[in-house]
Design a protein around this nucleic acid. Structure first.
Lengths: 195, 195
DNA sequence: CGTCTATTTGAATGTACTCAAAAGCGGTGG
DNA sequence: CCACCGCTTTTGAGTACATTCAAATAGACG
């Protein structure tokens, strides 16, 4: 295992699912691009072609889109050890619909789609890794849908605090409200009740 | 291409994404199990071990779970050319949480997880196919979350009718209401307005 | 035709929303 | 060090949409 480098965390992350030789690790890390970006900056904006997905080494980001009336809708937060991108744009090679914006100064590892495709054919374990990662994301989205559909604002907020304690402590409440489909005023009233 | 068999539709489905030789097609179809099942029957119940996912050749099904208070929550419908299962149980080898129940008499093709794993190693294109399939499912779940979070019942219902006209015409309204996170009475009032 | 299921209607209730304004908080510059 | 500014959170009052509970109608099927 390659130690004490910018790649330590992502390699640990991979090794929870697949096992790689030293040379395979090197082949993988060689296609990663390190990105350092300060807060309130955009990595993706609507219309962009998205040829990377991003692993968060440190920092915090949000993916959101603006609807026809200009309202913002946060789809996903990402902190350390998460992946984020406009996945639809990335996978289907269509122009981005989302903004990907940093909330804190962040360090990311970008993985390029074409390089990844080549990696898939050379080391099929990566196909496996990303299939499993996508599957897990799919399952947790399904859980989120159920909680969105059937639970009250208060229940959703408490669930969020349990599931993402890291995020709850780092992200302004109005962002959390948006993610939960609530207005900041409503979340404020909810918090007054539950604290 | 193998013609006029129970496998015609699933092979067409595959060929939208990957290209297979005759022998690869045969290898694939040989691991499929045909299931004919009449309406209001269960394919999966909570606690089951789920070692298959199901391609719908004909018919209509719903996947749902019952919460602590016994309320039903529909996660997914499936009609012709759709895949359905308790994907969490299937992928993660944990006991099922969902019911998978037929709404109409149905013909399914079951694909076994272990056989699929072997197929992945023998014909990597299948790893690719199922990765892409899962990715697309992921993207449409995300769309569903956004519409659930931010749109009114009326908007969600109209969106549903546009997106799944087949299902809207075949499934009782109280099922659709449940899927949309509405009560049947509310959907009834919405329908009175929009028709 | 009768029974069971699905849909509709009504009235009262509740949750979250809108709009408006005030309070809190953090950083900057005088 | 304090005053001010911008941003975030809180509070208040009135409103809208969906829910609950109860009951009436409509439809499907044997």
């Amino acid at each position: 295992m390659i130690k004490n480098s910018i790649y330590t965390s992502i390699l640990n992350h991979l090794h929870k699912v697949i096992t790689l030789s030293e040379s395979e690790q090197l082949e993988f890390t060689s296609i990663l691009e390190e990105i350092k970006i300060s807060k309130k900056n955009f990595i993706i904006e609507p219309g962009d072609l998205v040829d990377s997905e991003y692993y968060v080494v440190s920092g915090c980001l949000e993916a959101y889109y603006l609807d026809e009336t200009g309202d913002k809708h946060i789809i996903q937060f990402a902190v350390e050890d998460w992946w984020i991108s406009d996945f639809e744009a990335f996978f289907n090679k269509v122009p981005a619909k989302l903004y990907l914006e940093t909330i804190e100064n962040s360090t990311l590892l970008a993985i390029n789609r074409d390089a990844l495709e080549i990696l898939y054919t050379r080391i099929p374990q990566f196909e496996r890794f990303f299939r499993i990662k996508t599957t897990n994301a799919f399952v947790s989205l399904r859980t989120r849908i159920l909680s969105t559909l059937q639970k009250s604002g208060k229940e959703r907020y408490l669930e969020f605090c349990e599931t993402y304690p890291k995020i709850e402590q780092r992200v302004p409440n109005y962002h959390i409200a948006n993610y939960l489909g609530l207005k900041p005023e409503s979340l404020s009233r909810i918090r007054k009740e539950v604290i």
